[in-house]
Write a protein that binds this DNA or RNA. Structure first.
Lengths: 208, 208
DNA sequence: TTGATTAAATTAAATGTTTGTTTAACTTTG
DNA sequence: CAAAGTTAAACAAACATTTAATTTAATCAA
């Protein structure tokens, strides 16, 4: 799991190219060129193009699982605070790593890719963690009881993914073409997470 | 624009294969085989693989534009009724045509595909139609004034797309594996549109 | 209704390019 | 000096597209 500099530049280049052109449209030659290494190094280090994409997913998925669990099990903060943190952190993470998340979206659509099962298992685990958290909040009377948690998670993920993956459409439609890429990213993070937090609170929090 | 039976079976086969494997992973040989026509017929009728995908998009986009405009400009129904119809019809349309909509999602992610500009123009048009409708409802005091219409549309599209594109993950996570594909589809349509209608009404309708 | 003529439809085969991967030779490193 | 790293070249397979030959369908004068 420890990668040297050459392996890391291959992983980075592959993530970038797989994200913008797709797995099949990206040749190992393209990756080698982008990473500035010889073509044979990819087979040498990763075995094959398929194994390469698997390595990319594993690296990211493990990192997210840790963040999620730590974030929700932190008992120093209230349920609402932790829920807000969940939305904010998720949105931030997706917007800050467009390349990887585009790969993720693509892989979920594709049915014939090997990493698909890996993704499903980890999505399920993540969902169970969130569900337990909400259920706990419901038992403590903080969250409303008649919430479809699954659909709420789908709205969180679906909205964020859609904003991220069509961010340049969004930019043009909102007349934000004067913003730089990082300014746009900042705008989308705050805008999307505020929108979602409002939306969820409207159905999740008992009226005072 | 009038297609014969052979052209239609090519279009149908291509839509199916592009959707499940992606544009680049689908060879014209695969399409020819699925459509049960000779390989050369695809170049003969559509010129190239690129032109073929453009033809598919044009066919669908024109149909949706008509539906949307008719639906919202129907003055026989109230604003709320028309808004509900918008959500319901959109969700229904996406869920009932998974192949085409997966192609759409894919194309929006991909930056180097020719149809991308076509999609952007039509998304913008559709958004303007919806925005005018909501604004009209706001002027008439039916809808709340402080709604981020753009983000709401992104939640509609994002949630629906995400449910549709990961519908088999959804099925497994919800323990609905006993349902047939068409039963699942029906379940997802009602479930998703109800969820979204509730969500939007919570932020869109003035409290009575 | 015939037979000739022409354009459209259809085909198998060939084209030249690009693909992922391997090889075998070479260089660097410990 | 052996193991790991690196390379250009070679490999067969698959790719989109074109070609040239053949069949089908339509038109129309006799």
């Amino acid at each position: 799991m420890e990668y040297n500099q050459k392996q890391l530049s291959i992983l980075e280049a592959a993530e970038k190219l797989f994200a913008s052109h797709g797995f099949h449209a990206t040749s190992v030659r393209d990756i080698a060129h982008e990473a500035d290494v010889n073509i044979a190094m990819i087979s040498y280090y990763f075995g094959s193009k398929e194994k390469l994409i698997e390595a990319i997913f594993l690296k990211r998925i493990i990192a997210w699982k840790m963040t999620l669990t730590e974030m929700l099990s932190n008992n120093g903060r209230s349920y609402v605070e932790r829920f807000d943190a969940l939305v904010e952190t998720y949105v931030n993470r997706v917007m800050s790593n467009p390349c990887f998340n585009l790969m993720m979206i693509r892989a979920q659509i594709q049915e014939d890719i090997a990493v698909n099962e890996l993704i499903h298992e980890n999505k399920k685990e993540a969902y169970e963690v969130i569900k337990s958290f909400i259920n706990e909040g419901q038992e403590n009377g903080v969250f409303s009881g008649d919430v479809d948690i699954m659909m709420m998670v789908y709205t969180l993920v679906g909205t964020t993914n859609h904003v991220m993956s069509t961010r340049h459409h969004f930019q043009r439609m909102s007349n934000l073409e004067h913003l730089t890429d990082s300014q746009l990213q900042e705008y989308l993070i705050s805008h999307t997470s505020n929108h979602l937090k409002n939306l969820f609170k409207a159905i999740l929090i008992h009226e005072a």
